[in-house]
């Protein structure tokens, strides 16, 4: 009896970790690893709907290189990423620095105010901003008119040159407070004694920022840069709902929208997989480059 019991206890202890990871591993293998491997195979197929497929070698990739829509999508996505990352980060850091001052009152209120847009999903933001960008009646034109005297008839969503600024502005609203939370956490983790030591050494505010703050928050800053770049490259919902498609002159066509249109409107899953892998390569290359340039792997960060 007690022998039995001991072997049972030893057995359940040995089996426990396998049972604990099993649900995850089963789903992970069926719906992530397998589709991932399958998508490599699919990328070399011509498909018409999910049932029929023919091996076409590198044709999908060669077609992509010659398809002007792909280049438009790539250009739009890259411009969006560049502007949204480079506008968001300094603004997020600036907000975090302001809020981090010891004498700031109502820190929690401001934190919530800046963060709250992040709670609204991209589809809902797009619905809301489709009215905010309206000519004549929209909140944005009214605000610009009231503050700068700009005319009320700016057609943000109908003018190919203004679509991208509208998207960047909207994403700025959505993510500036979200990134600020990361910077704020990083700033609060910087050792206060370092500032005192710098002050004793006669360092100015600017020197303190450069030699204490910047190195202190660098790991998080790199993390935020890479995360927002990856997120920006995946832009889809916002333009898809805001402009009900690729917008005037394809000015809001993004890589994921291009993938969605070819894969699920036209029904070529093979081509959609090929686009997916090109997106993977672009994102990996850009994030590795960012990690290298910012010295993420140097010992002294």
């Amino acid at each position: 009896m007690s022998m039995h019991r001991e072997t049972f206890w030893a057995l359940q202890r040995k089996a426990a970790p396998y049972l604990f990871v099993a649900p995850f591993v089963i789903v992970f293998c069926s719906f992530m690893v397998y589709p991932l491997l399958n998508s490599i195979w699919l990328a070399f197929q011509f498909t018409n709907g999910p049932q029929s497929s023919v091996f076409v070698g590198f044709d999908n990739f060669l077609f992509m290189l010659r398809d002007p829509d792909f280049w438009t999508a790539l250009k739009n996505t890259a411009i969006f990423t560049l502007f949204s990352v480079f506008l968001q980060l300094p603004l997020s850091l600036g907000l975090a620095l302001l809020l981090n001052a010891r004498w700031v009152r109502g820190r929690n209120f401001f934190r919530m105010a800046f963060f709250s847009p992040h709670l609204v999903g991209q589809v809902f933001v797009a619905l809301l901003f489709s009215l905010i960008f309206l000519p004549h009646y929209g909140l944005l034109n009214r605000a610009l008119h009231a503050v700068f005297g700009v005319g009320l008839d700016t057609k943000w969503l109908m003018n190919a040159n203004l679509v991208m600024p509208a998207l960047v502005l909207t994403s700025l609203w959505m993510y500036v407070g979200f990134n600020m939370i990361y910077f704020l956490a990083a700033l609060q983790a910087v050792d206060r004694n370092l500032y005192e030591a710098a002050m004793v050494d006669g360092a100015s505010r600017w020197q303190q920022f450069l030699h204490v703050t910047v190195p202190g928050i660098k790991p998080i800053a790199v993390f935020v840069i890479i995360m927002s770049t990856i997120g920006s490259f995946q832009l889809f919902e916002l333009p898809f709902v805001l402009l009900k498609g690729p917008g005037p002159d394809n000015s809001a066509l993004t890589i994921v929208m291009y993938l969605y249109n070819t894969g699920f409107s036209t029904g070529d899953l093979g081509y959609a997989s090929a686009i997916g892998w090109v997106l993977v390569l672009i994102i990996l290359t850009v994030s590795l480059a960012q990690a290298k340039v910012t010295g993420l792997w140097k010992k002294n960060v």
């Binding site: 992970f28 397998y34 399958n38 995946q234 997989s273 997916g276 997106l279 993977v280 994102i283």
Partner: peptide
């Protein structure tokens, strides 16, 4: 393998998962 899949954007899974 888990960390590797985290680096990969989910959109590449759309077509094969739809097929599955």
């Amino acid at each position: 393998v888990m960390l590797a899949t985290m680096m990969i954007p989910g959109q590449v899974l759309l077509a094969p998962t739809y097929k599955l």
